[in-house]
Design a protein around this nucleic acid. Structure first.
Length: 114
DNA sequence: ACGGTGACCACTT
DNA sequence: TAAGTGGCCACCG
């Protein structure tokens, strides 16, 4: 969908806001949903700017389930605590049972929303 | 206006 | 199996 506020960053934030509690998704999955499968780094870069907005950024991890963005949450393990409060199990900075809680926007979100 | 930057990913040794 | 590397491209100064 083309809109006034349809910058790549804004579209990333919209998708992230749809991630259900207790679930996570990956940078690459978001990029793929937005039609830019090879722009996972852009998603990560977008998240860097998300601190001023209301976006559940802690639900975005890398493909292996690693909490690669944890250092951007102020504290050392803030990201981990936020996830654990939602029932996500984490060991060694890595989300456990990724295959079970992974939320893929391409499969779960209407493809023509944005 | 132009190039460095980056919370990634897939492919190659 | 693990580590290295190149591609990717929107944003901001």
């Amino acid at each position: 969908m083309a809109g006034k506020n349809d910058s790549f960053f804004e579209r990333v934030y919209q998708v992230v806001r749809h991630i259900p509690e207790g679930r996570v998704t990956t940078y690459g999955a978001i990029a793929k949903y937005l039609g830019a499968a090879r722009s996972a780094r852009m998603v990560g870069w977008a998240m860097n700017n998300s601190h001023t907005l209301e976006v559940p950024a802690h639900r975005v991890v890398n493909r292996q389930g690693l909490l690669t963005g944890k250092h951007h949450f102020g504290g050392t393990n803030v990201m981990q605590q936020l996830l654990e409060e939602e029932g996500v199990m984490i060991q060694g900075d890595q989300v456990q049972k990724m295959d079970e809680i992974l939320w893929d926007p391409s499969a779960e979100l209407a493809p023509d929303l944005y």
